[in-house]
Each structure stands twice: as C-alpha cells, then as structure tokens.
C-alpha cells in the first residue's frame, strides 16, 4: 500500500530527502522505538494539529487533541494493519475521530456554536507550510469540481464535525439526499485526487 504521493513533509527535515515510510516507522514504533516515533511526529504533527484546529477552531483545544492523538499513535502503533489502508489514513482517521468526539462533547460544542458565527478560515489561510501547499492546491482544485451541495455537505461534516443528520438540518434537505451527496462527493474527490484504494 503506497502512501499518498504528496504526503506531509517534516518541517525540519532536509528538502528533497527521501521521506521516511510511515508504515515502516509505525512498525518500529510498535516495538518501542522512540527515535522512529520522533520521525512520526515530524510527519504527522502538522496534519493532526491542523485538522484538530480546523474542527474545534480553538488553538488551545487543538493542541490538547493533537497531543492526545500523537500519544495514542505511540500507544496503539501495533494496531495498524497495512492491509486495511495506508498508515497516513489510519493515523488521520484516529485524529479526526478524536477531534469530532471533542467538538460533540457539550462544552466544546457550545463554544463551537459561537465560533461558527465567524466565517471559516479560507483554505489559503490554513495552508502555510511549503510542503502542504501542493496538497492543499490539489484538494482545493478537486473540491471546486464538486457540486455546491456536495462540497457543503462534505465540508460541514469533515471540517465542521457535524453528523449527517445535523448537516441535513443545517442545509434543509432530507437525510437520503445528504447521504447521497456525501457518497457521490467522496467518489468524485477520490477519483480527482487519484486515490488508490
């Protein structure tokens, strides 16, 4: 299973160096290798923190979530199954679920309600890392290829942490329509991004 071509880069790593393979690093982490975990941190801390920040919209909480997630990756490195998908996907699924759990917990949810009154950060504002920019541009291009309703549904659910029922209420459309938009939007994104399942 290949890692995404435009994977995250180490903020401190040498430019152009062959990026370490995350799956191989996780194998070493599962055997207690702290140096390997340091490299995992360098690869994933940006996406994990950025994703949490995007969902909870609060730097302090995002930092807490990122710390929890990264320590969880250390704890559960042996649970990664290469046959079930890429290591990046596994790690970021853990991160997203944690961020969503947090935002759905009562206080965080109420705080979010207040913050969502403010406009969401534009893509350009969140993509500040050089290594992220290409990934970011490609995702933005593919997001533009979705219908507006598909894009809204996916954005509210993934970056907003809303359930599809909440998305249905927010957009004023039926549950079946939301499920279809999410599925069709993801299929279109998957094909546009050239994801190899």
């Amino acid at each position: 299973m290949n890692e995404p071509v435009a994977g995250p880069r180490s903020p401190t790593g040498p430019a152009g160096a062959h990026p370490p393979d995350l799956a191989e690093l996780l194998g070493r982490v599962a055997r207690g290798d702290q140096d390997a975990f340091g490299q995992v941190y360098d690869l994933l801390s940006g996406p994990v923190y950025g994703l949490a920040l995007r969902v909870v919209r609060d730097p302090a909480q995002a930092e807490e979530i990122a710390q929890d997630v990264l320590v969880e990756l250390w704890r559960k490195a042996s649970h990664y199954h290469p046959e079930r998908g890429s290591a990046t996907s596994w790690a970021l699924t853990v991160a997203h679920r944690r961020a969503v759990d947090r935002v759905r917990s009562s206080q965080a949810g109420r705080d979010r309600e207040e913050r969502t009154a403010a406009p969401a950060p534009a893509y350009d504002q969140v993509a500040e890392e050089v290594g992220t920019r290409l990934e970011h541009q490609q995702v933005r291009r593919c997001m533009r290829g979705l219908t507006e309703t598909q894009r809204e549904s996916i954005t509210l659910a993934y970056y907003g942490g809303y359930t599809y029922r909440e998305v249905s209420e927010l957009l004023g459309v039926g549950l079946a329509a939301v499920k279809t938009r999410m599925r069709d939007g993801l299929i279109r994104l998957r094909d546009c991004l050239g994801v190899q399942p």
Partner: peptide, 12 residues
C-alpha cells in the same frame, strides 16, 4: 484515503 487528503490539506 480521500478524507486523509482533506486532513493533509488542513495541515498547520
């Protein structure tokens, strides 16, 4: 794998 790309695009 697709949503992982959405996460990577949000890196900060």
């Amino acid at each position: 794998e697709t949503t992982a790309r959405l996460a990577l695009a949000a890196a900060h």
